[in-house]
Amino acid sequence: MSKIRLATVWLGGCSGCHMSFLDLDEWLFELAEFADLVYSPIADVKEYPQDVDVALVEGAVANEDNLELIEQVRERSKLVISFGDCAVTGNVTALRNPLGEPEPILKRIYVETVNSLNAEIPDEAGILPPLLDQVKAVHQVVLVDLYLPGCPPPAGRIKAAIAPLLAGEAPELSGQNIKFG
């Protein structure tokens, strides 16, 4: 059997879901026998590749760069998994939503509360991606195949989701494995 092409993706999240992935610890050696990590922030890949079998997506869609990437991920992956509460619901990343547009938030942080030099909103075009007016959960933007909740999902839950995939079976999450927070 050929190896599964696995990707992990970071959008607007805290990286905790990725850290939980690394909490698979020595099971990562087993994973490496069945899967190739073809794209991940912890590996060296230039562009999201074609023909990915499984993509674990951490974080919510918060800015233009996130938006562009998630569309690519959907197009090029067979199975997209919302990985963690930020991806599933927006979670902490979406806490800014009730405040409306980002402009007053940026002003509060970069102009009103700075105690000294060059108070201004950072906005260099071409360098800083524009923020979306509202942060979105991944399924509000693209079709999601499986939800893996948790903040972050503990390593055991991640294993329960991906171990069946390695054996060519569809994962069934239930009980403790579908808990938020």
Binding site: C14, G16, M19, L95, R96, P104, I105
Partner: peptide, 26 residues
């Protein structure tokens, strides 16, 4: 940019450890 310094305004002090921890999973 996620804006913690702004969206925490108005929230109870008791929530702050749990919310600000989500700044960073490392």
């Amino acid at each position: 940019f996620r804006g913690f310094e702004k969206f925490c305004e108005g929230r109870p002090l008791w929530e702050m450890p749990g919310i600000t921890a989500r700044t960073c999973g490392i």
